[in-house]
């Protein structure tokens, strides 16, 4: 029974966040919103973590700013805009579509397009190489001459 309980506790345990309990907002709804926003924001110091996951000082400061603004009643987009104005595309884990990021967003489509073109070209070539081609009128005339020849 104890083992079962232990197993259940291990399985039910959520992922550990860098968040200090003291940082959390008292209102669970607001805290949930702040976390959702934080998960979209990149820690500028340890760059492959969101600010919710990072232990860096700057990430802690940014979490605090997000929470302050959530409490102040700002919308998600407003909070994101606040940080976007300071840190640019880099702070967004899902960068916005702009002239600078269009290649980033278009790469999958471009790669798919290039692959399709390649497949089409190969299929066309395979088609050319495959079956026998019909004779051209000159070839037919020549064949007829050869057949008529004694």
């Amino acid at each position: 029974m104890r083992r079962l309980l232990l197993l259940a506790a291990l399985l039910l345990a959520g992922p550990a966040l860098a968040l200090d309990p003291a940082e959390q907002l008292r209102d669970p709804g607001q805290e949930e919103r702040a976390r959702a926003i934080g998960r979209e924001l990149r820690c500028l110091v340890c760059q492959n973590q969101s600010i919710e996951d990072s232990d860096a000082d700057l990430a802690r400061d940014l979490r605090r700013i997000v929470r302050e603004q959530v409490v102040a009643g700002r919308g998600d987009a407003e909070v994101m805009d606040f940080l976007y104005a300071r840190y640019g595309d880099f702070v967004l884990l899902r960068p916005r579509l702009s002239a600078a990021t269009v290649l980033l967003w278009a790469t999958p489509v471009l790669a798919l397009g290039a692959g399709l073109l390649l497949v089409l070209a190969m299929r066309r070539r395979a088609g050319v190489a495959a079956g026998p081609q019909p004779l051209s009128p000159e070839e037919q005339a020549r064949l007829a001459r050869l057949e008529r020849a004694p």
């Binding site: 110091v45 700057l58 400061d61």
Partner: peptide, 12 residues
């Protein structure tokens, strides 16, 4: 507090 630095976009 490091708040003005954040307004400048300082990250280190």
């Amino acid at each position: 507090p490091g708040r003005v630095a954040i307004d400048w976009g300082v990250y280190g």
